[in-house]
Design a protein around this nucleic acid. Structure first.
Lengths: 203, 203
DNA sequence: ACTGTTTCGTACCGACTGGTATCTTTCTCT
DNA sequence: AGAGAAAGATACCAGTCGGTACGAAACAGT
């Protein structure tokens, strides 16, 4: 498709590593929480000048927005995709709980950056805030179709309307993620999760 | 007991209204969240000089601690006391949910200041932090004896150990309070609460 | 070599934070 | 009246925040 336009741009070549900056920002927000990491701190950690970061992203709101986009692509989307794989309900649910409680890899932060953004919703900028809202709606929608399918296959008997049940699952998963992020005992959280989801697996 | 020692203190008479300051602080923390209200802002709202506040409380940590003490005495303790009244389980549970979802009075803030302190636990000072921990333990203990009694009367069949179930109730109530504080639809939250507590009321 | 273009980063901005030094005011006791 | 004690509040501290003005630097085209 492209004729390899190696033609360099006009001015001084860009050295700003957008991906690295985003990586550092996402890691900070994820690990320590949105409000606990400042723009200054991200610049320090990424060894980046502040005007450089502002030139690239525009402001804190846009940086958060970009970090959320990245988080969605690398973490959220793959997990949500497992809900469309038509595996048995229990199996899917159990693996979701397992995934929420156990960090994907030892060095990856506990909890979920998106969940932290939801709890900090009120203090986010307009762009990030609306982005979070959209992802929330999307999440519930995915849960809804998942439940619908499982109910049609007779694997579960919904304790309430599909929408309400989907919202319930969403809220409970969020709770789990935030408790894990807060450093609570994973086994305790798992027990409570089992109790919360029992209404789905026992008629 | 006292011989009415009207004897005034040595220096300039104190005009600092501790109760008013605490009232303003508690209202701010409750309504807007702990991290969203600064010491400066409290001084502004209460029409108080900053050194005055620092002379009275010592620092932000101690102010939060005092606000929590006040919140416990005026809000938390009365609610917890209803758990020792030996009313039917369902009745007690329903009134707790109702109380969590509906503000006590129209002008009182939504949600629960204590719940907000729990979610902000990591960013609290040492005194307030440990105070929160103590109240958490105490809360679970109260839930435990409450469940024990109800189980002995045969009103409920515990879905797990008393401790786990008490912890579960604690976590779910906290979730409800934080969702209400976040401005979520009360009816949605109520439906989800009903689902979460169904395992307690249906065998 | 020069011009125009783009990115670079230092060094700053005003606002705010939690906290205090300091001087004044108002009292009691001698 | 004077001394000592306690509380009053202004005006400040260093540090951080999100954000930017601006000159130096590094390139392409001429």
């Amino acid at each position: 498709m492209s004729s390899e336009p190696v033609k360099r741009a006009r001015g001084r070549p860009k050295t700003f590593d957008r991906d690295h900056a985003l990586e550092v920002a996402m890691d900070g927000y994820w690990r320590e929480g949105i409000e606990a990491v400042s723009v200054n701190e991200i610049c320090r950690r990424a060894n980046i000048s502040k005007p450089g970061l502002y030139r690239e992203f525009g402001g804190e709101d846009e940086l958060l927005d970009a970090a959320l986009t990245r988080y969605y692509e690398t973490v959220l989307a793959p997990v949500m995709a497992t809900l469309t794989e038509d595996r048995p309900f229990r199996q899917t649910l159990d693996s979701m709980i397992e995934y929420a409680i156990t960090p994907a890899s030892p060095e990856s932060p506990a909890g979920c950056m998106f969940a932290k953004m939801r709890t900090a919703r009120g203090r986010l900028g307009p762009k990030t805030g609306e982005h979070v809202d959209r992802l929330c709606d999307q999440g519930v929608a995915v849960f809804t179709t998942w439940l619908d399918k499982c109910a049609q296959r007779g694997e579960i008997s919904l304790p309430d309307s599909v929408e309400t049940t989907a919202g319930y699952i969403d809220a409970q998963l969020n709770l789990i993620l935030n408790r894990i992020a807060a450093g609570e005992n994973p086994e305790t959280v798992r027990k409570h999760a089992t109790l919360a989801f029992r209404i789905l697996t026992e008629p």
